[in-house]
Design a protein around this nucleic acid. Structure first.
Lengths: 156, 156
DNA sequence: GGCCTTTCTTAACCTAGATTAATGCACAAG
DNA sequence: CTTGTGCATTAATCTAGGTTAAGAAAGGCC
């Protein structure tokens, strides 16, 4: 468990890596994402200050996700495989709850609803990341996100 | 931790319940699903023999999911809040990995790809549940699923 | 400053899947 | 046996979001 400083654009984990760590963000911003067979990027989560980011898929073999710094950041690197505490377990269950909600969201909600949910989940991220990453998080194209935003401002 | 027998159609947990249990399926088939504000059902997961089904959202308050028996089933009811073992934790992480994959799937894959993934995930469920539930699991309408299937058989 | 690359927006079109509606089935209830 | 009632399929139409393309704005970098 050590503290490290990473620069914007630096990649902490690549898809296919055989081991994986957890990263606790003290300052800055990370993201995790994957790239599918068609070469398309899909942003899985943002991790601003106070968040922990990891790739659970590593329990079953090689990792699925890239983890990258979107800003110069200071992060705590936590070793995998360490004994789990009770509070870790609760955090895991909460993470499952969040993912459960996200999956249901992706199944049922429109792009506008998902954008509103994004704004609620990450209130201060909108200004800090490129639109195309938000679009990727929402599972839509940047063009569609532009539409959504202009529809929202017109609707006021 | 007790063993119970439930009949087809019986509901073990309702959305909004304040506490929640884990159910380990010995025989039969359960499903979990939610109903959105528009009254639409979204099937979250199936749990055939050997699977465990639960609703993680209960850690943050009332439950989001219904849990229902799709067949007459024999299930083990596990109490929530019991001390977690190391293997529980690993199971949780695997669950996160599955959900992570599901979310990425929903973000990126077409209906056909999701159907193929469903067939791989639940090889022996297709014959046991109504088509409309499979459609709901895939996040599409029963009509669209019919199209997908006829497209697949034509394509042979 | 100017230049190049990347990002964002707008607009015209296209397609996967939703909606609506009609038909045919299965099976449960009388 | 007949009469529902819910389920699956097909077809016609509609729409949210994808694709393509082109111009405008915003950074790095020399």
């Amino acid at each position: 468990m050590k503290k490290i400083e990473v620069k914007k654009g630096q990649i902490l984990q690549r898809k296919g890596d055989l081991s994986s760590r957890k990263y606790s963000v003290e300052k800055g911003l990370l993201r995790s994402y994957t790239i599918d067979e068609k070469g398309k990027e899909h942003l899985f989560m943002f991790a601003p200050e106070g968040w922990i980011i990891a790739d659970a898929s590593s329990v079953n073999g090689p990792t699925d996700l890239f983890i990258e710094a979107l800003e110069n950041s200071i992060i705590l690197v936590l070793d995998e495989g360490v004994q789990f505490t009770e509070s870790d377990t609760i955090r895991l269950i909460k993470r499952i709850a969040v993912l459960q909600k996200r999956a249901i969201m992706l199944m049922s909600a429109s792009a506008i609803e998902r954008y509103d949910d994004f704004l609620k989940t990450y209130p201060d991220i909108v200004q800090r990341v490129p639109q195309k990453m938000i679009a990727s998080y929402l599972g839509i194209t940047p063009e569609a996100l532009s539409k959504v935003k202009s529809a929202k401002t017109k609707g006021l």
